[in-house]
Design a protein around this nucleic acid. Structure first.
Ligand SMILES: [Zn+2]
Length: 707
DNA sequence: GCAAGGTC
């Protein structure tokens, strides 16, 4: 139903080609050097401005405006200023405080938001320079947001009619030079679709957030910050679903059969291939068969060598994942550290999705610089030896329209904290590993059977034949396990059979990194925004963090219920797919931005009308979940604040009770046990869900004596 | 004050 070929932020413009004589493009190209009159070149960020001016001239002048730098290229016939934004300098804003609200305009971010004060000086400088200039070049990142960032500055301080777009997808000097010799007119297709995305997110997010807050205010007279949005709400819903699954989880008994075998005086263990076995009776049948036979017959014994290629260079989410896995860092912490390292010029730009190193990068030079850091000296010389100086990095599939994978610059770290070192070290090692040879692993697998019944058992071993890249990036090293040598048809002596009772487990509690990986997998949010959006859900008190992972709060659950009821599209990732389709149509020119916004307005207005009709009961629900007031009809579980759904229970406790009673049948079949024993057993198990526990404790164990 | 998106 929707087209998936349009990504909200990673949209790549049509391929960058500057060879105008091939006739591949009909767009007029202009060389910056042909323009007569002062020119302002606008970069997206200070570091990019520096790279751009270095590429354009060897004789540029660095100037200071207050504490920020800009650059000047002066020749006989022209003057070029290169200055930078710091990301978005403008933001959508409204003076109105009510909702529905559809009146908004772009205003300087430093005015609308106290935290963006630092952008003021950049905008002030750009304004002053723009005033002196005749031509304007948007040289922001070559993506949809870059098109918007530069456009708004030119619109408010320059002149769209004398403006150009520079198109480059790396900051390599030759590519930069070429792009400035082939400037195109402003890319209005991207600008319009970008503006449209901003407006859609604003009207949805602001209106629904205000509606939620208004409901709570009416019910409690308290101003409590609540929010909803295209990215945060589906993310909250995802976490809620996992938490509900856990809270309603009932472990089921199951049985694992293992056999201890002996070969050459060495005892090793094989597992029943049909594990887990669902009842104790069938487990015991297998057990006695094995004991009767006294030995197992080897049916298969195979060893297979496999190449393990190095993992690709880091993009931000892979780095966040590894730092979480290896050091337990939150994605936000890793991101902040990576940003610090970038600002210290120790690593390349970190907010990238790319798993590919720039092909024109001087790898050898970086390696030589890294070898001056004593802890990498030996690794680098080993790498040069192993590769015989042939430096061809592996790459992954993921791409980014404006930035390559993360790599170390080779600059020597001066004073890093322990945590900064940890992240820096991961980046360096991953970079080194990208050039290293594949590791070679051998996997051994044995299949054995009982001689008469043919019950099958298996075991496997793994050995590192050649470490290859694991020397440089050892965090994927498997623990080796060597099996005894076996031959087909060999009889192996049985020492013991173990039937271990275990229980099914609920899905794990989510960690922040799991949430981030999920957002990435369903393509919502961006490298820059995912970790901050997860943090925002905690700030709103929708979530709480515990040692074992994320938990949903009563408020978070209530917000998801309310949004699911009145704004269901906002809880689904399909809204992002829908936005992608719409802004794709704006880009193609088949729909206008105004048209798309008017349609969205209509939808939102209608939803808000229905919301407003029920605003009192919504307010009552949320204020009960906040613990401010009591529900009119309270769930009979003493610890529960929710309103009654059926039989004096809220909908979760009602469902829990039903499930608890339904699943007893299954338990009885697996493990002959009385209902009361079943309840007590469940209460004693840590994996039993919270809602299940509640109904056992407060209903079943209380009512039983009367039954 | 509220979104999501840039970047410090
Ligand atoms: Zn309840």
């Amino acid at each position: 139903m929707y087209s998936y070929n349009y990504k909200i932020t990673s949209e790549t413009h049509n391929k960058v080609t500057h060879n105008s004589h091939t006739g591949t493009s009909v767009q007029a190209k202009t060389s910056i050097w042909m323009l007569r009159g002062p020119i302002l070149v606008i970069a997206e960020k200070p570091k990019a401005a520096r790279r751009i001016v270095e590429a354009l001239s060897q004789h540029y002048i660095t100037r200071k405006y207050s504490n920020i730098s800009y650059y000047e290229i002066k020749s006989m016939s022209q003057i070029v200023y290169v200055a930078s934004a710091v990301g978005h300098l403008y933001t959508l804003h409204t003076e109105l405080r009510e909702y529905p609200v559809f009146e908004y305009k772009w205003v300087p971010a430093y005015i609308a938001d106290e935290e963006k004060k630092y952008t003021r000086i950049y905008l002030e400088l750009l304004g002053k320079l723009a005033h002196e200039c005749l031509y304007y070049v948007n040289a922001c990142d070559y993506d949809i947001e870059g098109s918007v960032i530069g456009y708004l500055i030119i619109k408010f301080h320059g002149d769209e009619k004398r403006a150009f777009r520079a198109k480059f997808s790396s900051l390599v000097h030759s590519e930069l030079r070429s792009s400035f010799e082939n400037l195109t007119p402003l890319d209005y297709d991207m600008i319009e679709s970008g503006l449209c995305r901003h407006e859609l997110d604003w009207i949805w997010g602001i209106n629904v957030s205000r509606a939620l807050m208004k409901a709570v205010f009416n019910a409690t007279k308290r101003k409590i910050t609540l929010s909803a949005g295209r990215v945060q709400t589906p993310t909250l819903k995802f976490i809620t679903d996992r938490e509900l699954e856990r809270a309603l989880f009932i472990p089921l008994p199951q049985y694992m059969i293992t056999v201890k075998l002996k070969k050459d005086n060495r005892v090793f263990t094989v597992e029943f291939v049909e594990n887990p076995v669902l009842s104790v009776t069938s487990a015991n049948i297998v057990k006695s068969a094995v004991l009767r036979g006294k030995y197992l017959l080897v049916r298969e014994y195979t060893t297979e060598k496999r190449k393990l290629t190095p993992p690709p260079p880091f993009n931000l989410s892979d780095l966040q994942y590894e730092a979480a896995r290896i050091f337990g860092f939150s994605p936000m912490k890793t991101q902040k550290i990576a940003e610090d390292l970038y600002l210290e010029a120790l690593i390349s730009y970190p907010r990238t999705n790319s798993q590919k190193l720039p092909p024109t990068l001087n790898y050898r030079e970086i390696l030589q610089k890294l070898s001056r850091i004593s802890k990498y000296e030996d690794l680098v010389s080993r790498l040069i030896r192993e590769t015989r100086g042939i430096l061809r990095p592996v790459e992954g599939e993921k791409e980014d329209p404006a930035h390559p994978a993360i790599y170390p610059t080779g600059n020597i770290p001066q004073s890093l904290t322990r945590d900064q070192w940890a992240v820096y070290d991961l980046i360096v090692r991953r970079f080194l590993a990208a050039f290293a040879p594949s590791a070679i692993m051998s996997y051994t697998r044995a299949l054995l059977e009982t001689p008469s019944e043919g019950y099958k058992f298996t075991c496997s071993g793994v050995n590192i034949e050649l470490p290859g890249w694991l020397i440089y990036y050892p965090y994927h090293t498997p623990s080796t396990k060597i099996l005894p040598k076996l031959a087909r048809a060999e009889r192996v002596e049985v020492i013991d059979v173990v039937v271990r009772e275990s229980y099914t487990r609920p899905p794990a509690k989510l960690k922040k990194i799991d949430v981030l990986k999920w957002m990435e997998s369903v393509e919502i949010g961006t490298e820059s925004t995912r970790a901050p959006i997860i943090e925002k859900l905690f700030e709103r008190n929708y979530l709480r963090n515990t040692k074992s992972g994320i938990e949903i709060t009563d408020l978070g659950l209530g917000v998801v219920e309310v949004i699911s009821w009145f704004f269901p599209e906002l809880t689904s990732i399909d809204l992002t797919r829908r936005f992608e389709q719409l802004i794709g149509e704006v880009k193609a020119g088949s729909k206008s931005r105004l048209q798309v916004i008017e349609e969205a307005k209509g939808v939102i207005k209608k939803l808000l009308e229905v919301f407003n009709q029920r605003i009192d009961s919504i307010g009552a629900l949320l204020s009960a979940r906040l613990g401010i007031t009591d529900s009119y009809t309270k769930c009979s579980i003493p610890t529960c604040r929710r309103e009654v759904h059926e039989n004096s229970l809220c909908k979760y406790h009602y469902e829990a009770l039903k499930k608890l009673r339904d699943l007893y049948e299954e338990w009885y079949q697996r493990k002959n046990i009385a209902y009361k024993e079943y309840l007590k057993k469940l209460l004693n198990m840590k994996n039993t869900g919270m809602f299940i526990r509640d109904v056992i404790e407060h209903i079943e164990l209380r009512e039983l004596p009367h039954k």
